[in-house]
Design a protein around this nucleic acid. Sequence first.
DNA 1: TAGGGTGCCTACCTCCAGGTAAGAAACATT
DNA 2: AATGTTTCTTACCTGGAGGTAGGCACCCTA
Lengths: 107, 107
Amino acid sequence: MSTIPRDTAHCPVRKAMNLIGSKWKVLLLENLRDGLKRYGELKRLLPDISEKVLIQELKDLVASGLIAKHAYPEIPPRVEYELTDSGRQALPIVDSLVAFGKQHLAA
Amino acid sequence: MSTIPRDTAHCPVRKAMNLIGSKWKVLLLENLRDGLKRYGELKRLLPDISEKVLIQELKDLVASGLIAKHAYPEIPPRVEYELTDSGRQALPIVDSLVAFGKQHLAA
DNA sequence: TAGGGTGCCTACCTCCAGGTAAGAAACATT
DNA sequence: AATGTTTCTTACCTGGAGGTAGGCACCCTA
């Protein structure tokens, strides 16, 4: 509790925002919460995300360890994504966002 | 649970993101959680936010009913901001973000 | 009369998240 | 051979969030 206002590098909120604060990451986590999903499924579940951004967001989430990617060299190719333990730790955020959003949709 | 993927207008997550998904709003809510604060205090607590954006974010939060503004016509002027009941409903989001962020700062 | 503490506004500009469009590899089906 | 399926890539472009810089109004104190 120093008078130093807020050290960016050590601010939990900013760290969290950097990891999942983009437009789509929370929605991806939400869609993965009930088990693994294929790339095409996610694409269908989030029809208004472009392919480029979907891939990019998935890559980011994999890079930060929140989801895992499993690629099966079949024909046609099959790729599945699922939450890691780390990713599951983000689910409370999703939950609270959903709860908050619902309250303000009703109003 | 229709096959219609996700109705943007009724998606709780998107609604929540629209309300507090900006770069600074969560940090503002966090700083207001333990009581009302003057404009100048917030400015000092978040030294790397520009005045323009600070005012703008506060306006947004007031407009969406998450915080309340009290202006006292004194000299020099005094303006205080505090969470509304609606705003307090967003605190679980802040909490979960903090918890999640802390776990990933340690790692 | 000059400066200082408040809270705010406006014009301008930059940068990048995210959108669009197109294509590629690799085989299966028709 | 032609078309479809699936996952992913690349080049290009735009809108808008957010930063910068400066000014304003008010009165106090020195």
